[in-house]
């Protein structure tokens, strides 16, 4: 492999960010290699979504640096017409709230939105949109308005609307939150099968999801990076998971009359 392949997709260096009335990230540094699947773990409010917004170029670091394939991600860099649009094509984001993600009047319009913004030709837009609808098995929903879809269907439409641009990096914010177990399993299976060589970054507070698909884990706690490393090591470090509120200890029953305490996960 050449030197190029070794350039990290994302590189964070002492990244800090605060909202007008709340600090969100402080001194976060790590990098993401191409083809990796990274689970971004953390309790609610730990800064996962904010970090994803920085990686996706939707907000910009107020301290430190965020680099994409060696180039610094700044507002000015993305304002540049060709470069900005190319970055949007290469980095796809599936947001946590499907109602915010799906803002078009029909499923077809939703999936075609990205290609149209890219300025592709009419034929190309129609062809790629058709492919994406087939790939996610949502052709039947083509003319349906998103408000009539189930949670699982909305998630698949959201994935199609992002994958239609064939991004190299896929960012997912809590992809399994608010789904029933069957839809959850379906989304995980899909990610498992299709995302082969893509770089994937998943924010989640579900250890189960992380166990199933992550190569690497980064743990956020109160806006700071609590740990970063191979998935097996982090997911088996009970002390770490407990201190970052990813595991709870409480009493519950195992069989008749045997209440006791042990670490326990809620997802």
């Amino acid at each position: 492999m050449g030197v190029l392949a070794m350039t990290p997709v994302f590189e964070l260096e002492g990244v800090g960010f605060r909202y007008p009335n709340a600090p969100a990230l402080d001194g976060v540094s790590f990098s993401i290699a191409p083809g990796q699947c990274v689970a971004l773990l953390g309790a609610n409010g730990s800064g996962k979504s904010t970090l994803l917004r920085l990686l996706a170029g939707l907000a910009f670091a107020q301290a430190g640096h965020v680099r994409f394939q060696g180039g610094e991600l700044t507002e000015a860099a993305l304002a540049d017409d060709a470069g900005g649009l190319e970055f949007r094509r290469r980095v796809g984001v599936v947001f946590q709230n499907p109602d915010a993600q799906l803002f078009n009047a029909t499923v077809f319009d939703e999936v075609a939105f990205g290609p149209l913004q890219m300025g592709w030709s009419r034929e190309q837009v129609l062809e790629r949109t058709g492919e994406a609808l087939r790939a996610l098995d949502i052709e039947a929903l083509r003319e349906r308005p998103p408000y009539r879809l189930s949670g699982g269907e909305k998630k698949r439409v959201a994935l199609a609307s992002v994958l239609v641009l064939d991004p190299e990096v896929l960012i997912l914010d809590e992809p399994t939150a608010a789904l029933d177990p069957q839809s959850q399993a379906r989304v995980i299976d899909f990610l498992f099968e299709r995302l082969g060589e893509r770089t994937v970054i998943i924010a989640t507070h579900s250890l189960e999801v992380a166990r199933e698909i992550a190569d690497t884990c980064a743990v956020l706690s109160g806006g700071q990076l609590a740990a970063h490393g191979p998935a097996e090591g982090i997911l088996s470090d009970e002390a770490l998971l407990r201190s970052t509120h990813l595991l709870h200890v409480h009493r519950h029953r195992h069989g008749p009359g045997s209440a006791h305490s042990h670490p326990h996960q809620h997802s």
């Binding site: 996706a56 649009l85 949007r88 947001f95 149209l116 913004q117 009419r122 992002v162």
Partner: peptide, 15 residues
């Protein structure tokens, strides 16, 4: 955010 992430820059393109 969702619109920008898919390339929207204030001008609409439709089919």
């Amino acid at each position: 955010d969702a619109m920008r992430a898919r390339g929207f820059r204030g001008e609409a393109v439709t089919l």
